[in-house]
Simulated assay, not measured.
Amino acid sequence: MARNTRQTSLDAPRGRSGMLQRTPQPSSDRFGRFSEAFARAMGTSGFLIGMTIFVAVWLTWNIFMPPQLQFDPAATNFTLLTLILSLQASYAAPLILLAQNRQDDRDRVQIEQDRQRAERNLADTEYLAREVVALRMAVNDFADQVLTRDVLRSELRALLEKLENSPEVEDGAAR
């Protein structure tokens, strides 16, 4: 009987990788990785220093250069610079939010795995505590009985007599 490889058998344990598998979506994943890299880069001191240098050079050029070389003059209140910074901000905000959402999803999965691990640890600890209590009770039962040589000899004699009088021993000797 041919069996579909996608079918899972109920008698086989499901592997760790089978629990969190999703269908691959490379395009959205690639964009998600891009958004995380973008958000990570924007949160660095290098980015802030670079942006500060860019704006300083832009302003210096458009203030101190001759008017025919200025491409965003101060007379127009640096409209082009304002538009560029607004465009950057309009793209940065959604990309940062996307990166935060992806991190939240990873955190949620990690929290669930931690919770499951904690439940297993608690169950193991409770089991071990019950076993320790059972061992203590067994030790306490033996502590009440003092085993002397005379008591041991009498117990062994009783067992020997019981074995000698059992019908199985007589049947085995008759054969």
Results as ranks from 00 to 15, higher is better:
A143R: 15
P66R: 11
N140K: 14
R157S: 14
I96K: 07
P24A: 09
R153G: 01
L87Y: 11
F34N: 01
R117W: 07
A56G: 10
S86P: 01
A39C: 03
N165A: 09
A41Q: 06
L10R: 06
P13Y: 05
L20G: 02
L10S: 11
P24I: 05
F71G: 02
P26F: 08
Y91D: 08
S90M: 15
V132G: 00
L10N: 11
R14D: 05
S86F: 08
S9L: 11
T52Y: 01
L128N: 12
R108N: 03
L81Y: 01
M19Y: 15
R108G: 02
F64M: 04
Q100A: 14
M42N: 11
A158D: 15
D150I: 05
L59P: 01
L10E: 10
E161Y: 04
L83F: 05
A134F: 06
V55N: 00
F78H: 04
M51H: 05
R120H: 12
L87V: 13
P13W: 03
Q145H: 14
V57H: 00
F64K: 00
D114P: 00
A75Q: 14
S17E: 15
L87M: 10
S28N: 04
D105F: 06
E126V: 06
L20C: 04
E126Q: 15
R14I: 11
R130V: 00
S9W: 08
D114F: 02
T125L: 15
A2P: 10
D171A: 10
A173R: 08
E170W: 10
V151H: 08
F64V: 02
D107K: 04
F78Y: 12
Q110L: 06
S17R: 15
V57K: 01
S35T: 07
T60I: 09
R22W: 06
E119I: 08
A92R: 01
E155H: 11
A2W: 07
A56C: 05
I49H: 02
Q100N: 09
E36T: 03
